[in-house]
Design a binder for these strands. Structure first.
Lengths: 347, 347
DNA sequence: GGAACAAATGTAAGCGCTTACATTTTTTTA
DNA sequence: TAAAAAAATGTAAGCGCTTACATTTGTTCC
């Protein structure tokens, strides 16, 4: 017990609706109306109330409002990570569009862990999110049951599966990757490898891998002999994985990467190993994040309209929440960005 | 009016505390205790209650809890943008540490707009944030008054000013930049330029600029003739600004950039202009984001321990919230990362 | 001018939880 | 074994808002 730290105790108390009502000489109902549907109250009293609000520095208590009104004007989103530019960008657009419609966004990130994601979803639900944005399909079935019971509209983004009837906005990771792989194989590559994220709990990663395998099978390759390394979405992981995969026999002439972050790592490793890209080995990514075109050599990758996806997701979700209707899923188009890291194999 | 969309109406109703209590044959108080301080209730009834919770799929209503308990175990943070890796990274660490202590993070981003930031702060306060993390010092004074009235402990991050008595964790943007500038000037540069973010509402940007000017003055340069271009923190802005600044007479032999994003843009522009770096012009950044070392040539910049800052910020804020005490501000050390974009001026 | 209606405001009942205080049950102590 | 103390549980009063319904005030129209 030495010297006390300075106390942070308040000078004043926090004003409530009732305080405002008292000061303005009206009932709490009127104050509430002034705040929520101003046109229901006559101008004269409205200005008086607003003045009281201002004088007191009143700000409505969100929890109390949520409890009474049973909605929050809040949308929740659970993303795998904030550290990948694609989510950061998509979510930013999502938030901007939500804001335009008077909704607030609550973001949580799950670090690609299924259990954590589930917990975050429950937290967001408990916090009264009116709707939810989730990434991909892979998820415990009873979670969707939980959300249905609470009638929380949920939209899936960054993925699209024709067969599913869950509302979604995204693209087919499999088709996109297969298209790219076909193009690569047409260039004559026969020894291929893939660096993927963990496919266990990540359907996007799984689909991208499946896309490569699909194209490989079409091209008559023995898919069982294709080296696949699963790792985390970090540059350094890409470095390690690339080293490993290049030690394979036969050595790949092209390495597909599950996303651009991994591809950047692979590129870095190639340089360190003294390999020239694409002469010695071609490298491809996925996402088309900003560094992709800045890399040296620039990265061949698949462009995904992240911003558009975020923006439109917001619109869809607001519709679901307000109209209580299930929208048509939308499939977005991706396209291949052919850049310098892809070339024909050495002969 | 064509076909109705499928309705999303719930099959069931959402269980409440009272439902659980009824099913377990106890009072609501006991259920509440089971959830919040389990050791206050005897094992036998606790298991019974927990079973009821499980059977019903009960999840506590956050708003109701917040309203009754007057705290939320929630920390709010307002950052300028999610799209800059430094905040994404720092905030991720912040969140992880908060999570470890049972706190939830609410993030909002202000797009570097003062008015928006203020609004976000009020929103977070209304949502019952127990504490707040804010970036930098620049802020309407009455906002701090507002937070004090509501006794919401607030920590400032990414900046540190000795003179201020607001709790903060960060570093001196001015000193860090001045150190770098001194080093640059020692190499013989006399024609310098700076690409900065808008200094109007951004004290970090202002301090970084001040750092360059300080060192320049020490070196006897005429600071009024140093070209400074203010722009937004985007790669493309860096490109434009670099072109502009290189048209200055006399043409700079070194361009200081307010952060790495701008520097990457400058580097790109230099390449496009056929200038070689650092032979024709040196370029420096600030932050040491991941691409800085990946760029070609690698970027000389100032390394900031973003992760550490985020982690420690969480600890400090939790202390402030729980112990209701004002902590000592902490100044973190930055250090210069000398890489290839910096060289002596051409003679 | 007053009936008929519309607009503005007030009254008060919750929303689902926590917690101070009261009561009951169990354990300890002499 | 009974009184005292401690532990477990129950009772009920809010927390700060919204909103259905009731009441008052204002407007319209013949």
């Amino acid at each position: 017990m030495t010297k006390e730290p300075p106390s942070l105790t308040p000078d004043t108390t926090v004003p409530t609706l009732a305080d405002v009502a008292r000061r303005a000489g009206v009932s709490t109902a009127t104050v509430s109306r002034c705040l929520n549907s101003p046109d229901q109250v006559i101008e004269r009293t409205r200005t008086r109330v607003m003045q009281a609000v201002k004088d007191l520095g009143y700000a409505p208590n969100f929890s109390a409002r949520a409890l009474a009104a049973k909605h929050t004007n809040t949308i929740g989103a659970v993303i795998p990570t904030m550290e990948n530019a694609i989510f950061a960008r998509g979510i930013q657009a999502f938030q901007e569009e939500l804001g335009r419609h008077g909704y607030t966004l609550l973001v949580a990130s799950s670090s690609y862990q299924e259990a954590l994601e589930e917990e975050q979803i429950r937290t967001l639900a408990a916090r009264g999110a009116d709707g939810l944005l989730l990434i991909g399909y892979h998820r415990n079935a009873k979670l969707h049951e939980f959300l249905r019971q609470r009638s929380i509209p949920t939209l899936i983004a960054w993925a699209f599966e024709k067969e599913s009837d869950l509302p979604a906005i995204g693209f087919s990771n499999k088709h996109a990757m297969a298209d790219l792989a076909r193009l690569v194989l047409e260039k004559g590559h026969r020894k291929i490898g893939m660096i993927s994220a963990d496919t266990g709990a990540n359907d996007r990663a799984r689909d991208r891998l499946a896309g490569v395998m699909l194209a490989a099978r079409e091209a008559g390759l023995d898919v069982d002999r294709i080296p696949v390394i699963e790792t985390t979405y970090e540059i350094e992981s890409g470095v390690q994985a690339f080293r490993q995969i290049m030690a394979w026999t036969p050595r790949p002439t092209v390495v597909f990467c599950g996303n651009d972050v991994l591809a950047i790592g692979a590129l870095k490793a190639a340089k360190e190993m003294g390999l020239s890209v694409p002469e010695d080995v071609s490298i491809t990514g996925f996402d088309d994040i900003e560094i992709a075109s800045l890399a040296e050599p620039a990265l061949t990758t698949i462009h995904v309209p992240h911003r558009e996806m975020g923006r439109r997701a917001a619109g869809m979700l607001i519709d679901m929440v307000t109209k209580n209707a299930s929208p048509n899923s939308v499939e977005l188009q991706t396209d291949i960005r052919l850049r310098r890291t892809l070339g024909p194999p050495k002969t």
